[in-house]
Simulated scan of single mutants.
Amino acid sequence: MPLLTPDLLLRAYANGVFPMAESAESEELMWFDPPHRGVLPLDRFHVPRRLRKTLRHFPFDVRVDSDFHQTMERCAAATPNRPSTWINSEIVEAYCQLYELGFAHSVECWTGQGADSTMVGGLYGVSLGGAFFGESMFSTITDASKVALVHLVARLMRNGFTLLDTQFITTHLAQFGAMEIPRHRYRAQLAKAIALEPDFQGGEEDERALVTAFLQSLTQIS
Rank of each mutant, 00 (worst) to 15 (best):
A104R: 12
A104Y: 12
A104N: 13
H105C: 13
H105Q: 15
S106V: 07
S106D: 13
S106A: 13
V107G: 05
V107L: 12
C109P: 05
C109H: 10
C109D: 13
W110N: 06
W110K: 15
W110Q: 08
T111W: 10
T111K: 11
T111Y: 10
G112L: 04
G112M: 08
G112W: 01
Q113T: 10
Q113I: 07
Q113Y: 09
G114I: 04
G114Q: 08
G114T: 09
G114F: 05
A115P: 10
A115D: 14
A115C: 07
D116K: 08
S117A: 13
S117Q: 13
S117C: 12
T118V: 09
T118W: 05
T118F: 00
T118M: 05
T118N: 04
M119E: 10
V120Y: 00
G121Q: 00
G121M: 07
G122D: 14
G122C: 07
L123E: 07
L123F: 02
Y124H: 03
Y124S: 09
Y124K: 08
Y124Q: 05
G125W: 02
G125I: 01
S127A: 11
S127Y: 00
S127R: 02
S127V: 00
S127P: 01
S127C: 00
L128D: 05
L128Y: 09
G129Q: 01
G129W: 03
G129T: 08
G129L: 00
G130E: 01
G130M: 04
G130S: 04
A131D: 00
A131F: 00
A131L: 02
A131N: 03
A131V: 06
A131I: 02
F132M: 12
F132W: 12
F132I: 03
F132D: 09
F133P: 01
F133M: 13
G134E: 12
G134F: 06
G134R: 09
G134P: 11
E135V: 08
E135R: 05
S136T: 04
S136Y: 04
S136A: 14
S136K: 09
M137T: 08
M137I: 13
M137Q: 15
F138E: 06
S139L: 08
T140A: 14
I141F: 14
I141W: 07
T142Y: 12
A144Y: 00
S145I: 03
S145V: 06
K146I: 07
V147F: 06
V147H: 01
A148S: 09
A148R: 01
A148Y: 03
L149N: 05
L149G: 10
V150T: 07
V150H: 08
H151G: 05
H151V: 07
H151K: 07
H151A: 07
L152A: 02
L152E: 01
V153P: 00
A154C: 04
A154E: 02
A154D: 04
R155H: 11
L156M: 03
M157F: 10
R158F: 11
R158L: 14
R158I: 15
R158E: 15
R158P: 11
R158T: 14
G160F: 14
G160M: 09
F161S: 06
T162G: 15
T162Q: 15
T162E: 14
